[in-house]
Nucleic acid binder design. Structure first.
Length: 616
DNA sequence: AGTGAGTTCTT
DNA sequence: AGAACTCAC
């Protein structure tokens, strides 16, 4: 063992086992483990109440583990992470900083800048992969481009060689001495007094912390993994429940993968068909988590713009009354309302419900998907920026392999499929508890007598549908036509040299935008390889033959640019690569014509909002 | 063999 | 919601 001193900068890797940064530091000498809480640098993605509760619990847990290994976890609250790191370096005389990499759009930029500043001061900085099976830059197609469909991506991953992981935790840590302005876990302010009472219930159902994560994994693999295929059929059932642990890195995804693979081998030998299917499906959801990081890394604008540029001109309905009704579970569609109330009360909902309620927000209410995504971020116990970005892009028609933009699922039909007995609805909407199963997912069709017998008065104790579904369908198509019109107009005006057609003054994406320069450097910073940024062909582009096949609303109905502007030969301009092929200079003009979507999410105060329902 | 109804799948 | 599939005639 050497005598070097290393700062181990913990972030979302709150575990001892299979923690490459911690292991590297411990191998070489003395360690100084630190967790730095800097709300300012979280920007608009400051974690919500339940997520912060989890973090707090997990930090206490990690602190105890590190202590038993001989080193103290130093907690620091600061306005500048880099300043805090420099304090640590100064007081300990450390020459090195190590951490495990993160891939969300905020951290990518922040970590890059911090690394650069430290290196400039002569400090050795090393980052490791503690979050993924494969680094995003290891997986490209045969042309060297980033995948934009999941199946091809995951297929490639599954055929890659994975290096074996050592699960041996460091058995002893040699602490580096030093005094900094440290805080107690309370002083970090992860939980204020008003939040404590709401949070106290969380501890009954969840046990954060890396060793609890291990137990949860074992329990899942031994007893529930085999039934994983069934959990997608009904919304009342639970899934692996590992997502919050994975978010904060209390569980190593490599360990999960290996543990599940072991079962896979066993069941393959036994020719256990259900087991094999379950494993495939579970690994696929692990793959989606990987893919979410992959997309964020390769297309780091996806938290503010859709991957396909089709939604750029979509006329969102920035209606705050509707947004509030959705949040509070008062849309009049029982399955949606039940889901939103479970989310509100517990911070966790089944993936299927996530798809249903988010589709409803986007396709029926025409709310900007970023509003919904922000609300999920604020309320989910397992809130995870990358996964939520992927999920919302998937349902809003922004991915080549996601739901189509014009697809609008009926909550009534979804309800009869995934909650056939109505148990889930009854659990979360007590006002409908006595409703007969036949009408539970569409009480508006029930006769007055049936409603009366069930004690339901539509519009009084349970809302009427916020909008009729057929009308919603019409509105959605109108919006799509409008989008095409604006897109066509923008295209003709652009080739004309004017950019005045669609200017959205409500667009504050300026604040979120990641400078192109940083993007380029970010890659070299992490990998020393160059990265070809590409955006896939617009699914809704007139030039995409696949779209012609898929859409029934084509040909004559879609506005033709050359018809709108007949003295110009503008047809055939491909929109491919538009978003990133432009240089920083020319993109400023394009930015003006960004989106019809209001990017600022309206303020809502969760504590002042009437809580529809208490407790679990 | 061809058709239509029912089932299952979808990141 | 819609495509792809199965199965019974």
């Amino acid at each position: 063992m050497g005598s070097s001193k290393t700062i181990v900068w913990f972030r979302r890797d709150l575990r001892i086992e299979d923690n490459p940064a911690l292991a590297a530091a411990a191998r070489d000498g003395c360690v100084f483990p630190v967790f730095i809480w800097c709300p300012k640098e979280e920007e608009q993605f400051y974690p919500g109440r339940v997520s912060r509760w989890w973090l707090k619990e997990s930090l206490v847990h990690l602190g105890q583990s590190l202590k038993s290994l001989g080193a103290e976890l130093v907690l620091i609250k600061t306005h500048s992470t880099v300043a805090a790191l420099l304090d640590c370096i100064e007081t300990t005389g450390a020459t090195r900083v190590v951490f495990n990499r993160l891939y969300d759009p905020i951290s990518l930029v922040r970590d890059h800048n911090i690394k650069e500043e430290l290196v400039e001061l002569g400090i050795s900085v090393q980052s490791y992969n503690g979050d993924l099976l494969y680094e995003p830059w290891e997986i490209y197609d045969e042309r060297g481009h980033a995948f934009t469909t999941f199946e091809a991506y995951w297929d490639k991953c599954l055929h890659m060689q994975m290096e074996p992981v050592s699960h041996l935790p460091p058995w002893r840590l040699v602490p580096a001495a030093g005094t900094v302005m440290k805080s107690s876990v309370e002083e970090l302010g992860l939980e204020d007094e008003a939040e404590k009472s709401s949070n106290s219930l969380l501890g009954r159902g969840w046990s954060p912390g890396w060793s609890n994560a291990d137990k949860a994994l074992t329990e899942f693999a031994e007893h529930h993994l085999i039934d994983y295929v069934d959990c997608r059929l009904k919304v009342g059932t639970s899934t692996s429940l590992l997502s919050p642990y994975l978010h904060f890195g209390e569980l190593s995804v490599r360990k999960v993968f290996q543990c599940v693979q072991l079962k896979q081998l066993l069941w393959a030998k036994e020719e256990n068909l259900k087991g094999k299917e379950s494993v495939t499906l579970f690994l696929k959801s692990i793959g989606l988590r990987e893919y979410s990081r992959y997309l964020c890394f390769n297309f780091p604008f996806t938290h503010e713009r859709s991957l396909l540029s089709n939604l750029k001109y979509f006329p969102w309905n920035d209606n705050q009354v509707r947004f509030k009704a959705w949040r509070q579970g008062r849309t009049g569609y029982p399955l949606v309302d039940a889901g939103m109330r479970e989310l509100w009360a517990t911070g966790w909902i089944h993936n299927r419900i996530r798809v249903i309620v988010s589709s409803f927000a986007v396709k029926v209410l025409l709310l900007p998907w970023r509003w919904g995504m922000k609300y999920f971020w604020d309320t989910l116990l397992d809130a995870d920026l990358e996964s939520d970005i992927l999920g919302w892009q998937y349902i809003s028609g922004s991915l080549p392999d996601g739901h189509e933009l014009e697809r609008l699922d009926s909550p009534e039909i979804q309800g009869s499929r995934f909650d056939p007995e109505g148990e889930y609805v009854r659990q979360w909407l007590p006002e409908l508890a006595r409703m007969p199963t036949e009408w539970i997912h569409h009480p508006w069709d029930a006769t007055i007598a049936v409603l009366k017998a069930a004690g339901v008065e539509l519009g009084i104790n349970y809302p009427k549908p916020i909008i009729d579904l057929d009308l919603a369908r019409e509105r959605l198509m109108e919006a799509i036509f409008k989008m095409w019109e604006l897109e066509a107009a923008a295209r003709t005006s652009n080739t004309n040299g004017t950019n005045e057609v669609v200017v959205d003054n409500t667009d504050d994406s300026e604040n979120l935008a990641i400078p192109k320069v940083v993007l380029k450097e970010k890659v070299t910073c992490l990998t020393n390889s160059s990265n070809d940024q590409r955006v896939p062909t617009n699914q809704y582009s007139q030039n995409n033959p696949a779209y012609r096949k898929r859409s029934k609303y084509m040909e004559d109905e879609r506005p033709q640019p050359d018809k709108l502007h007949n003295d110009d030969n503008v047809v055939g301009t491909s929109r491919k690569d538009e978003d990133l092929s432009s240089t920083a200079e020319s993109s400023s003009a394009k930015k003006q014509a960004t989106s019809r979507c209001s990017f600022s999410v309206p303020q809502y105060c969760s504590s002042s909002e009437a809580k529809p329902m208490q407790g679990v």
